[in-house]
Amino acid sequence: MSKSTIQVDDDYEAWFRRKVEAGRTALRDGRVSSNEEIEARFAAKREELLRRLDESSA
C-alpha cells in the first residue's frame, strides 16, 4: 500500500471516529429525532414545495 493510500485511510478513520462521537454526543444530549419525525418534517416540506410550484404555474 502506498503512503498516500495509508494517509487517506488514516484521514477517513479519523473523520469517521469524529462523526460517530458527534452522533453519540447528540444522542446523550437528546438531540435526536425519530424516523417518524423526520418523515413528517420532509413530507411537510414536499407539500409546501408542491404548493408553491402549483401557485407559480397558475
Rank of each mutant, 00 (worst) to 15 (best):
E47L: 03
L53N: 12
D29A: 07
D11T: 13
G30P: 14
D9N: 13
E36R: 01
V8S: 13
K19M: 05
K3I: 14
S56K: 07
E21I: 06
E13L: 09
T5G: 09
E48I: 05
E36Y: 00
I38F: 06
F16K: 14
F42P: 02
A44L: 08
D10F: 00
K3P: 06
L50G: 01
E36P: 00
A40Q: 05
S4N: 08
A58K: 10
G23E: 15
R46F: 07
V32T: 15
E36G: 01
R46I: 15
A43S: 09
L49G: 07
Q7H: 04
G30N: 08
S56W: 07
V32N: 05
R51L: 08
D10L: 08
S4K: 09
E48Q: 14
A58F: 00
R41L: 08
D29V: 01
A14Y: 03
R52Y: 01
R17N: 09
S4Y: 03
D10S: 12
R51M: 08
I38D: 03
R28C: 00
S2P: 13
A22Y: 01
D29N: 14
D10V: 04
A44Q: 13
D54C: 00
D11F: 04
G30R: 01
W15K: 07
V8L: 14
E55I: 02
I6S: 10
A26I: 04
V32F: 14
F42Q: 05
D9S: 12
A22K: 10
R17S: 05
R18P: 02
A26Q: 13
E39N: 01
R46M: 09
R41A: 07
D11P: 02
S2K: 04
S2I: 03
D10K: 09
S33R: 10
R18S: 06
D9H: 08
K3N: 13
E36H: 02
E13N: 09
A22G: 08
R18H: 08
E39V: 04
R18D: 13
G23D: 15
A22T: 13
L50C: 09
I38M: 05
R52I: 10
W15I: 06
L27A: 10
G23N: 15
A44W: 00
E55Y: 01
S57W: 04
R31M: 02
S34M: 03
A40G: 00
D29W: 01
F16Y: 12
R31N: 12
S2R: 03
R18Q: 12
S57Y: 05
A22C: 03
K3S: 11
E48Y: 05
E48V: 08
Q7M: 03
S4I: 15
Y12E: 11
L50R: 09
L53I: 10
S57R: 14
